[in-house]
């Protein structure tokens, strides 16, 4: 078993934009070790989101191979992909994607609904631990609409952490936040990376923030440069 959380080899992905075929990824290869934190940087339309969607098992490549946790994504059924996303991957979305009718703790607990083996007590402990890590334990019973943008993103991060995944993918997690809050979120992600065993891949086009990350993967025209 290799020490790679992600291994993407010669990945191609295209999609249609009207009548035009757009090659979003062109033979991209990438490796990310367990516990590593890397930033994925590129201009708008460079293929960052397409790559994150493939690495997050939300989509399949047209060509090439992607292994997450040493398992080939392209060979998996929809059910297996769902299990992989639920157990091994944590997502942090640019738009937070919190369910407005659920309290903070319920939003964080959302992926744990599929963890039948966990008791209610264990779930509660995991949720509170995740909220404590992101500094929102006091807001556990708040509704998302009562939270600021930065707090909402912290809830989304707690939701990504709560399943204790091997890989956390963050798609422009600071894009909707002001500069101060964005820095705080990156600090938090760095801190979590140092404490957790999980690998982090954060996409961003904010050069200032990227400057703080040790490994930067630059993507241009569908390949890593």
């Amino acid at each position: 078993m290799s020490d790679l959380a992600i291994e993407a080899t010669d990945v191609w992905k295209s999609y249609k934009l009207g009548d035009t075929k757009v090659d979003a990824l062109r033979g991209l290869s990438l490796q990310l070790k367990y516990g590593e934190l890397a930033a994925l940087v590129g201009a708008s339309g460079s293929g960052k989101s397409t790559l994150l969607n493939l690495l997050g098992a939300l989509d399949k490549p047209d060509r090439g191979s992607i292994a997450i946790n040493n398992r080939q994504v392209e060979a998996m059924s929809d059910e297996e992909l769902g299990q992989l996303r639920n157990r091994k991957i944590g997502f942090i979305f640019q738009a937070f994607h919190l369910i407005p009718v659920l309290k903070t703790r319920e939003n964080v607990a959302l992926p744990l609904q599929l963890f039948d083996e966990l008791s209610s007590k264990d779930r509660k402990m995991r949720v509170e631990s995740a909220l404590e890590k992101v500094g929102l334990l006091d807001f556990a019973d708040s509704m998302p609409t009562r939270l600021s943008g930065g707090q909402r993103q912290r809830v989304a991060i707690a939701r990504a952490l709560v399943t204790e995944p091997d890989l956390i993918l963050a798609d422009e997690p600071t894009a909707n936040l002001d500069s101060k809050t964005a820095h705080a979120i990156i600090d938090l992600l760095e801190e979590l990376n140092s404490k957790q065993k999980a690998s982090f891949l954060i996409s961003s086009h904010d050069e200032k923030l990227i400057g703080r990350v040790k490994r930067v993967l630059r993507i241009q025209d569908g390949t890593i440069v």
């Binding site: 769902g82 299990q83 639920n86 997502f91 979305f93 738009a95 369910i99 609904q113 599929l114």
Partner: peptide, 13 residues
């Protein structure tokens, strides 16, 4: 749609 997408992304069958 996004809520459904979120649930699917989180692995809900």
């Amino acid at each position: 749609s996004m809520e459904i997408g979120l649930l699917a992304a989180l692995g809900f069958p």
